[in-house]
Design a binder for these strands. Structure first.
Lengths: 212, 212
DNA sequence: ACCTGAACACCGTTCAAGT
DNA sequence: ACCTGAACACCGTTCAAGT
């Protein structure tokens, strides 16, 4: 039965999680999600792995959906961070946007189940931290495109460009994740999509001033 | 207890499904999917609604995943049909492709849970009827673009165009389904995406000969 | 405030038995 | 070939009780 215990309390039997059970659960849930998908994520098994009773998670997450929402929120934070750092380097706008797109697809493919959680929101309400996290992602794209012109028309095309950019990356990632195209084909498709968008009227209007 | 019985056998007590239990299950499962999502789809409740024992579905679907796969396959058939008929009418290529994209998004939004089932395939094998059904969808797009040039370069750009077209529609549909943009914004985005793709070098190469 | 452990209703899957 | 019904292991959720 000692094999059921974690590594850090082979000596002491009881005092386990001080106040960080919540994060422990989230971290273990993330790997369970990655390994077994959403269906493979069981609250009871999660509690078992954390070394607590099956009722314990209830103190931190009212139900399973609450845990799933928290995972999605953390996912958005991590994605935003990945994308932001991919964008941070030097190079032309085209190169930086390309790196960003690549980071996005990398994340989506590497954490397909989490991505599914993030983009098939079950929650009805339009407010909440989860929506904020999603908005933050678009802001990164906004920053990358440099200062915006103050004309309304330009802002409109900029919004459209951002949405189209995000939608296209999302779609390509879905194609890869569902094994309909290979990873290499996906990378080529990302590059092609970048060209198509940047050479278009919409793209030229949207990034008129942005030249890192 | 008579309330548990279906409409067609208020008189006779036993002879129920002759050999069509399979389709009955699939049809009821489709509405359960639409109403309660994938999580809300229970084999036992499905059997209950169909008026058979909980073990009966086993005769037609070895396990729950097999039912889900069958649902996805039917989904592809229906999507292909919708898209094909949207494409069938008259008008310029731009208009026909626009109608097709609209039909695609309509389907994806109206049957979001089914769409999720279709595009997050759990099956590892690359063969099988499910993959065939997905391929059929791309063939419709191929037909719409008219006869292809026999040069290899042209075929390559055509393949790329089709994938990019599909990915973009998929991404826009995901944005709508996750409530991140409204239906109207989605429609506008579809239209914008069409313009961007058709005015690009890639688009011009891909549909060089296709003019309804 | 946080965790335990029994209880409840539900589930997917297996399988011997019926027709 | 198709369906029934008991059995098994597992699950999410609730809740009184402990500390």
């Amino acid at each position: 039965m000692s094999s059921l215990l974690g590594y850090s309390e082979l000596m002491t039997s009881r005092p386990f999680h001080h106040g960080n059970l919540r994060v422990v659960l989230l971290e273990r849930a993330e790997v369970m999600l990655r390994e077994g998908g959403v269906d493979g994520l069981s609250l009871r098994e999660l509690a078992r792995e954390a070394g607590v009773s099956h009722g314990a998670p209830r103190s931190h997450f009212p139900d399973r959906q609450a845990l799933l929402d928290a995972l999605a929120e953390r996912g958005f934070s991590r994605l935003t961070e990945d994308v932001r750092s991919a964008l941070a380097g030097s190079g032309s706008l085209r190169h930086r946007l390309g790196r960003m797109a690549q980071a996005y697809v990398d994340f989506a493919v590497g954490d397909a189940a989490l991505m599914e959680l993030m983009f098939t929101t079950k929650t009805e309400g339009r407010t909440g931290p989860l929506q904020d996290a999603a908005v933050g992602l678009l802001e990164v794209l906004d920053d990358a495109m440099g200062p915006s012109a103050d004309a309304d028309a330009s802002n409109s095309s900029r919004e459209t460009f951002k949405l189209l950019f995000g939608a296209t990356m999302q779609g390509i990632a879905a194609l890869i994740a569902s094994r309909r195209i290979s990873r290499d084909q996906g990378n080529a498709l990302v590059s092609e999509a970048m060209d198509v968008m940047l050479e278009s009227q919409l793209g030229k209007q949207a990034v008129a001033q942005g030249s890192g």
